[in-house]
Design a protein around this nucleic acid. Sequence first.
DNA 1: AAGTGGTCTAGACCACTGC
DNA 2: CAGTGGTCTAGACCACTTA
Lengths: 240, 240
Amino acid sequence: MKEKKYQLIANEIKKRILNETYKANELMPEQGKLAKEFGVSKITIKKALDGLARAGLIYKKSGLGTYVLGQTLKMGKLDSPANAFDGLYHQQGKEHIKSKVILFEPEFPSAHVAQKLNITTTELVYNIKRLRIIDGMPFILEHTYMPVSIVPKLPLESIKSSIYSYIHDELNLKFGGAFRKIHSDWSNQDDVKYLETNLKVPMLEVEQVVWLANGKYVEYSKSRNVFNTRAITVVDINNF
Amino acid sequence: MKEKKYQLIANEIKKRILNETYKANELMPEQGKLAKEFGVSKITIKKALDGLARAGLIYKKSGLGTYVLGQTLKMGKLDSPANAFDGLYHQQGKEHIKSKVILFEPEFPSAHVAQKLNITTTELVYNIKRLRIIDGMPFILEHTYMPVSIVPKLPLESIKSSIYSYIHDELNLKFGGAFRKIHSDWSNQDDVKYLETNLKVPMLEVEQVVWLANGKYVEYSKSRNVFNTRAITVVDINNF
DNA sequence: AAGTGGTCTAGACCACTGC
DNA sequence: CAGTGGTCTAGACCACTTA
């Protein structure tokens, strides 16, 4: 799998921003210089920078130059970016995260779940409940439905660690995108049971549908956190 | 202000998707055909489609074609997309929304606010509290800080309707992007007072920093909703 | 093998900024 | 005016999917 030039360049520039070769609120080298340095055309540099701009790392001003953007809403250690497909396991590091499998069963989906996954009610799905534990603390209660047809042999080992890694690295499938709906709710019996909290406490719930690059829906899930343990962060860049 | 070709094309294709000329889960005309139809080069079509793909309307599969994506996580009527700069006023329509101005004062920002807005504590900001009311129902309690230097003459009329429209249409400034942090919390005294709810109820809070296309920070705000009145939706497309 | 989308180029021209 | 980023093109070539 050959890395694309614009991807390589974007990664290199990102590295330079993170190690402060290019400092926050300062001008970066102009596109022409970068094109020369990397030995590519101007438009390829632009593509790399466009990606970084969308990720909220830089901004460009026509007639002036490209600036490094100072990140002002810092993420807490346990916050999750809403724009990411690497999963908790990678965000937090595998030394810190454990998963307890509460439920792992095949079943025929309800009409509701089938509709979310764009399948019929006769196509089997896995019904998976996991408690994600970070540094020994119960953290997220995840309830996931996944079509069996897409992940026919889901190893228990992956469920305990990272289903996303299995899909990405072992099955070599690429994620396409996700719709997420974030809202707030009262804690329920399950939350109390697994997240070591009380009844009638605020919860943060993320409901999501995830699809692969080949257009197939791979997951419908709800993740619940106790209110004061996690926030979701979103970067939203105007235009394209 | 001349519209760009890829923007015009993206809008036209979006229209066709919405009026179901191109139907969900079906193939769209290939890029070559579209290029011919609109009389532009293939790469311009691609740019238009890339934008639509990032907005979650379509997905493309190399070797196959471009599909219209069926939206499976429907937004509720009062939900807000996290990816949008048009503001509530436009999302809900001005017939339905009213704003009650609770506080509107200039002040020197606290160190915290100054840091978020990337200014010094000697640069004046507006301290604005608004209650947004939809169809007579108290809906969102907004607390906003805005540098006076960017909006020197903010008309009270705009605060009552749409500050975003004023910035965009009257001042002709373009939004650049936003960082948002979404979390859950207990309701507090202010929530009870203005949102007609009880104490100790779950709330959804969106904390955000918004900057303009010229890189200047224009807003630091916190918006609070009662838990069962609104959700935030996010579309997250892998890669660029 | 044919057809799709994706990458990349060189270069023309435009739009915006500051001097 | 010079210098920046943005748009757009024609066309070469690659990667992927289906047959």
